[in-house]
């Protein structure tokens, strides 16, 4: 099991470019109140058997607060989806408009710190990468997760101009996933050696796999294992 990439089971249906077509409650128009979407929620499985008996919890609900309303008003189609998972706000945005939305979030919505930037790989999906931004607002003491989908080879706008911290984080995402950030001042590998082949955190990169040629050449041994 551990040796080969697992069959990914994304919590929400594969969104692709047309989220409206999917039956997910998370994609329902925001006008609908959150509790009305209870019957759907395919993602919410019952809590583990050992947990105290209670009705199946709905963990993912569509998010429809003022912030999302403001964002939708401003960016319309730029905001693909807004949901809440375990009380944490997640907004999925269109990849091409990520920079613009990030700038708006920083300046208008006061999400002044980019706490983390990373990616998640869903190889079965049409656009396999989630680029995930964890934002934090000091004035509001609030967190917001912003996601953008990117297919392999698609360029994601770099956020180094918005938050300087994105520099190393984007290099790490590039290093580990091979996601290219357009406009990054020096997009090179950061943790792995410059000549390394492959991007280890992709699901099709096996845990035992390594760049044997590099290891042989630079370390003088057959295998690093």
């Amino acid at each position: 099991m551990a040796d080969e990439p697992r069959e990914p089971k994304p919590p929400q249906p594969p969104p692709g470019e047309k989220p409206a077509g999917s039956p997910s409650p998370t994609a329902t128009p925001p006008a609908k109140p959150a509790d009305a979407s209870a019957p759907a929620a395919p993602a919410a499985k019952p809590a583990p058997p050992a947990a105290p008996p209670k009705p199946p919890v709905v963990l993912q609900t569509p998010l429809n607060n003022e912030l999302v309303a403001r964002l939708r008003a401003k960016f319309e189609a730029g905001i693909v989806e807004a949901m809440e998972d375990r009380k944490q706000a997640i907004v999925t945005v269109e990849r091409a408009r990520l920079g613009e939305i990030a700038l708006h979030l920083r300046d208008e919505e006061k999400f002044d710190m980019l706490s983390d930037l990373t990616a998640v790989d869903w190889p079965k999906r049409e656009k396999r990468f989630d680029v995930v931004l964890n934002l934090y607002s000091f004035p509001k003491n609030e967190r917001l997760r912003v996601k953008a989908w990117a297919a392999d080879g698609e360029e994601v706008p770099s956020l180094t101009g918005v938050w300087p911290v994105a520099n190393w984080l984007e290099r790490e995402a590039f290093d580990m996933f091979g996601i290219v950030f357009a406009g990054h001042p020096g997009l090179t590998r950061i943790l792995l050696p410059e000549e390394w082949q492959g991007h280890p955190l992709r699901k099709d990169y096996d845990i035992l796999q390594q760049d044997t040629a590099w290891v042989r050449e630079n370390l003088g041994i057959e295998s690093g294992q």
Partner: peptide
């Protein structure tokens, strides 16, 4: 807490700092 021996969290994601 009662969590059981095999942990299978429901699908989803969380950020905790």
């Amino acid at each position: 807490a009662k969590v059981g021996k095999v942990l299978k969290p429901p699908p989803g994601e969380v950020y905790h700092a």
